[in-house]
């Protein structure tokens, strides 16, 4: 995540300063998503994809662990 943030911050830093006015009232979300050309939206999207894949990996890991346990038990049973 840190690596990603720093990666993202490179173009953000290069292009910084583009905080242009938004017509709506700025709430925290607006502030976060719209800051410097909306780069944080990209950060959020990439982070969500990684989180999603990590959740999948964790689920798959559990599935494999169960499988290993079952096979292990069977070998001790024999």
């Amino acid at each position: 995540m840190k690596l990603l943030r720093s990666l993202c911050s490179i173009p953000a830093a290069l292009l910084a300063g583009g905080t242009f006015a938004q017509s709506q009232t700025p709430d925290w979300l607006q502030e976060t998503l719209f800051h410097s050309g909306k780069i944080n939206t990209v950060v959020a999207v990439v982070a969500l994809v990684l989180v999603g894949l990590a959740i999948w990996m964790a689920a798959f890991d559990r599935r494999l662990t169960k499988l290993e346990k079952r096979n292990g038990q069977q070998t001790t049973d024999q």
Binding site: K38, L48, L53
Partner: peptide, 17 residues
């Protein structure tokens, strides 16, 4: 899994645009 990722990322993108 990919449908869920597509939905979630799409929603964040929609909020910003």
């Amino acid at each position: 899994v990919f449908a869920a990722l597509g939905l979630v990322t799409g929603m964040v993108w929609a909020r910003a645009t």
